[in-house]
Design a protein around this nucleic acid. Structure first.
Lengths: 335, 335
DNA sequence: TGTCTGCGTCGAAGCGCTTCGCTGCCCTCT
DNA sequence: AGAGGGCAGCGAAGCGCTTCGACGCAGACA
C-alpha cells in the first residue's frame, strides 16, 4: 500500500505539501505540483479513505435509505437510486445503501458513527418515525417524498397534488364526468405514504371544482385483484368513462381486462397513468401519462444535499411540477 | 461527539478495555464489562467509523457494483441489491453502491483507497474488463454471474445452462416439437452477457438431444417489437407450439398478442418463462416458469464474500440449480 | 537599505481507534 | 511453601491523513 509519506519522499517534498496538492487548499508552485503529481501516478497512490475520514471528519459518503418493500413500484426506486449514485459520484461522493429494514436505528448508526456526511431518505411516510432523529443529527438530510410537517426539513418530490389535479383536468377537458381512480395497494395508504394521499387530495379537490364524480379504489396490481376491482367499479358506476391509474403494476392488467371486456381505449374509456415515461410508451396502448421524474428526483436530492454540505442554506421544499403527455389512451367519451 | 476515551473515563477504565469490551477480542470480567456497557448506553456512544477503519484497516463495508443499464430487467437487480444489503447488515457490514458507470476505474478506486473490504460485482460479461484488476486487488471479490474463465474467481449464479435445458425438457416431455425462444434484447447478446448465452447453450444442447426444432429471436420487450417478432416467428415456423421467454419485459406483450391472435394458452401454445416467481404468478395467465432466485443469489454472494474475509477458501463457483414450477401456461400441444 | 507583505513549503500535532506487550494478581499444582 | 500459568486490565505506539502555525525568501515600498 502506497502512503502519502511515500509519495512525499519520492517527490522530495513534505507530506503536507502532497496533501495540499491533493486538496488544493493552499497554493503550490507549478513545478512542485507537477513533480508530486508525477510521483502519485508513478507509485499508483490512492488516499486511504479511513485516514481521510478520521483526519478531516468527512467521509465523502452519502447514505441512501431505500425501502425494502415490494408493494411500491420497484423500477422507480431503482432509477432514483442509480441517479443518486451517479450524481453523487459527479460531486465526489460515494453512496452507502441502507435498507429500510433497520428503520430509525440506521439513522442513529450512521449519524453516530460518522459513516456518512449526509443522508437521503426515500419512501417517506406522513408521520415518519425517522424524522425526529434528523433534527438531532448534525448530518444534512434530504427527503425524497413529503412528510406531513416539513418544518426544518429539505424535501424533493413530484408535486403529487398538482399531478392529481392535472389528470382530473385533462379528463374533464375532454368531457369525461365519471372517473375511476386505480390507486396503490391498500397497505400503501395504511402506512400513510405521502405521495399516495397527496395525489388523492389533488384529485378530489380538482374533481369537486370541475364537477367530476370520482371513485377511488386501491389495487394490488395483480391480474386477479384488477379483475375484481374493475367489475366492482362498473357495477357501482356503469357510466365510468375515465381511468386514472397510480399503481404502475395495475396498468397492464387494466388494459388487458378492458380489451377483454370489449371496451376500446380510447374510444370507450380513456386511461391516464401516473408512471415513468418508459412504462407509458411500452404498454400495449401508448398511454397518456404524467411522468414520474425519478432521475430528476435523485439528481436534485443529491444537489440539495451537496449544497447543504457546503453550507448553502438552499431552498427547503423542491416540488417538481408535473407534466402530462397526451398519447393514444385518452380522448373524448362516447355519446 | 462521544469518544471511546470519554466512555473509558466515565466507566473508570482504560481506553483499551473499552475497545476490548466492544470487540470481544480479549476476556473482560463481567462487572467491568457491565460498567462499560452502561457507560456506552448512557453517553450514547457510537464508534467512529473512520478511526476504526484506519486503526484496523478494515472498513466493514462491502462494495456492490450494479449495472446502470436499463435493458436488463430491473426488479431482479433491485432484489439482489436489497438481499445483499440485508444480508450484509446481518453480518455487520454496510454496502457501498457503485454503478457500472465508472467501470474498471471504480474497482481501482475502491481497492486502492480501502473504502471497502470486499466487492460484489453484478452484470458480468463473458470477457469482463473488470476481471483482470481483481487478481491484483487484495480485496476478496464475488461475482454474481459467470464470466468465460472462472479461474481464481468466486461466482454465484443460477445455472442458466441447466435452466435452458430444463425448459426444453419440459416442453419436449409434453410433446412439443417446434419451440420459439424469446430472448433478451439484442444488445444483451452483443456485449456477451454470460447468462443469456448460457441459457441459449443449454437450450440448444437439450433441443438437439431431444429432437426439438428451436428458433431463437432476441426481443426488446416492448409491445411493438414483440408484435413484429411474433409475426416473423409464425411466418417462419407456423407449427410453433411452444414459447420459452427469457426477457421478462416481453411476457405481458407476448400473452396479450397471443390472445389477440386467438391463440389460447395453454390449449394452442404453451409458454414457459424464466423470471422471478412474482412475475410468473401475477401475469394474466399463471406461468409455468423457472424462477430467478434473486434473493438467494444476493444472500449467497454476501455469505461467500464474508467467508473469504474470514479466510475460508470456500467453494469457488456456486451454481444454483434451477427449479421449474408447472403452472397454467403449459400443456400438451394440439393435434 | 531596511521593513513589510505574501507566497510556497515544512514540521508537528492530532483525529479516535486497535493492538501489542507488560504487569499484577489469584489460583493451582507439586 | 514456592513456582507456574491464566486472567484482567493498563499504557503506549501507531494507522495515514489534514491542518495550523511558523519560517524563509522573494519582491515592493518608503
Amino acid at each position: 500500500m502506497v502512503t502519502l509519506a511515500e509519495v512525499a519522499r519520492h517527490a522530495g517534498v513534505s507530506a503536507s505539501t502532497v496533501s495540499y496538492v491533493l486538496s488544493g487548499k493552499r497554493s503550490i508552485s507549478a513545478p512542485t505540483r507537477e513533480r508530486v503529481e508525477r510521483s502519485i501516478k508513478e507509485l499508483g497512490y490512492h488516499p486511504n479513505a479511513g485516514a481521510r475520514a478520521l483526519a478531516s471528519s468527512r467521509s465523502n459518503i452519502i447514505a441512501l435509505m431505500v425501502p425494502l418493500r415490494t408493494d411500491i413500484y420497484v423500477p422507480v426506486m431503482m432509477e432514483v437510486a442509480i441517479a443518486v449514485a451517479t450524481t453523487a459520484r459527479a460531486h465526489g461522493y460515494d453512496v452507502l445503501l441502507l435498507t429500510g429494514e433497520e428503520g430509525p436505528a440506521a439513522v442513529r448508526r450512521v449519524t453516530g458513527s460518522g459513516l456518512a456526511d449526509a443522508m437521503i431518505l426515500m419512501d417517506i411516510e406522513l408521520e415518519d418515525e425517522r424524522l425526529p432523529l434528523l433534527h438531532a443529527a448534525r448530518q444534512p438530510t434530504v427527503l425524497i417524498g413529503l412528510p406531513a410537517d416539513t418544518i426544518g426539513l429539505t424535501c424533493v418530490d413530484l408535486d403529487f397534488t398538482a399531478t392529481g389535479a392535472l389528470c382530473a383536468e385533462h379528463l374533464a377537458a375532454l368531457g369525461h364526468r365519471e372517473i375511476a381512480v386505480i390507486g396503490e395497494a391498500a397497505a400503501v395508504y395504511e402506512r400513510h405514504t405521502g405521495f399516495a394521499e397527496r395525489t388523492l387530495d389533488g384529485l378530489r379537490a380538482a374533481a369537486r371544482e370541475l364537477g367530476l364524480r370520482l371513485l377511488h379504489r386501491p389495487c394490488e396490481g395483480s391480474y386477479e385483484s384488477m379483475d375484481g376491482t374493475l367489475s366492482r367499479i362498473f357495477d357501482e358506476r356503469p357510466g365510468t368513462t375515465g381511468f386514472i391509474v397510480q399503481n404502475e403494476a395495475a396498468i397492464d392488467p387494466l388494459l388487458s381486462l378492458l380489451r377483454r371486456q370489449g371496451r376500446a381505449v380510447p374510444e370507450d374509456v380513456s386511461v391516464v397513468a401516473i408512471c415513468p415515461d418508459q412504462v407509458a410508451t411500452s404498454a400495449s396502448v401508448r398511454l397518456t401519462s404524467v411522468a414520474i421524474p425519478a432521475q430528476e428526483m435523485g439528481r436534485r436530492a443529491v444537489e440539495l444535499v451537496v449544497a447543504k454540505l457546503q453550507g448553502d442554506a438552499s431552498e427547503q421544499v423542491a416540488l417538481l411540477p408535473p407534466e402530462l403527455t397526451v398519447r393514444a389512451s385518452s380522448g373524448p367519451p362516447p355519446f
